[in-house]
Each structure stands twice: as C-alpha cells, then as structure tokens.
Amino acid sequence: MDLSDVEVSLDLFDVIRSRRSVRKFKDQSVGDEEVVKVLKAGVWAPSAGNLQSRDYVVVRDGEVKRELVKAAEQQFIFDAPVVIVVCANMERASEKYGDRGYNLYSIQDATAAVQNMLLTVHALGLGSCWIGAFDEERVSEVLGLPSGVRPVSMLPIGHPDVDPNPPKRYPLEKFVHEEKW
C-alpha cells in the first residue's frame, strides 16, 4: 500500500481550511491501516537534503499514554486511541549539515511531517491536535529515545466527538511584506 491508496473526497484547500484541533474523541478504535496512511503522509513531507531526519513512535498502550499525559499535562491525550510522537532525528540531519542540520533542519523536517499527517488525519475523517507543549526529557525517557532524537510533537488521533468552530484568522496583509520592509 502506498499513499495513492488514500481516497480523499475533499479538495486540498477544503481539507486545509476545514481541519481543526480536536481534543475530544469517541470511544472507538483507529485501525492499523489508517495509522499507516498517516505515517506515510509524514514520510512524504519535504526534508532538507532528502535526509528525512524525523522518526515516529506510535503509542497505543494505556500506561505509556498516562505518562505522556503527565509530561504534557493534557488529559485528553489519554482518550485518543493512538498517539503518534513525531521526533527530530538531529543526528541524521547533522551528518550532512552539521550544527544547522542538528539544531534547525531536523526540527523543520519533523514539523513538515506533522502538517502532512494532520491533514491526512482530517482527510480520513479522524481528528487530532498538534501538541508541542510538554516536558521533552520526560517524553524521551518514557519512550526510550536515543541521544540525538528529540520529541517535537505529539499527535493524539481518534474519531472526533466534537466539531470545533473555525478559529479566527488574521487578514493575509498582516503576513505578506514587500521585499523591503
């Protein structure tokens, strides 16, 4: 199975505009096939030098999820049937790019994967939330991450039990600048 197996009935821009952070899930499992599709979406994200300096830890175990809840102080993580922890593989990025790869490109690679994964979660009719606020040391310890692999994001994934309203967005003019400010 490759990413072309994912059937999406929404236009890309509809998927982007309609994706929401979901923090409440139904008591319903998420299948391995869906998890693999989400992971493959992460694999296809762009990366510096195509080094793909990111790793994923899939968590379904209740005790491990309890520890992630403690590390993030966000109870809803436990209610998600699956949590994917996206990590920056700093060692892999530094092989080609030295300090810049270690400190920046690996983080960019991981976060590019997160966005692909969040959009895929939504296109599959599931929900998730990008969690970046957590105790990195504790998460690394709980997951047994090796040195040079840094947890960047947790994605609790499940069937949404809410339909959040769209958040307010600033006008485009606030973000776009001429080449000389």
Rank of each mutant, 00 (worst) to 15 (best):
V83M: 08
P46I: 01
E91K: 07
V82H: 05
M90R: 11
D61I: 11
R54I: 09
P81S: 04
Q28L: 15
A41R: 00
V43N: 03
G62Y: 13
N89D: 05
V83I: 10
D27V: 11
E34G: 08
V58K: 04
E73S: 15
D61K: 09
Y56V: 02
E33K: 15
V82F: 02
V57N: 01
V86M: 05
V57F: 06
A45G: 04
P81N: 12
S29P: 11
S53E: 04
D27C: 10
V36M: 12
G62F: 14
D79K: 14
A41L: 00
S94K: 09
Q28A: 14
G49L: 06
K96D: 12
V82M: 05
E95K: 08
F78D: 09
E73I: 13
D61M: 07
C87T: 02
K40G: 07
Y56T: 00
E95C: 00
S29Q: 13
V69E: 01
E91T: 07
L51K: 10
V64D: 05
G49N: 08
Q75H: 11
Q28F: 11
V82S: 07
K37G: 02
S47Y: 03
L39Q: 12
S29R: 14
F78L: 15
S53T: 08
Q28C: 07
M90H: 06
V30W: 03
S29G: 11
F78A: 14
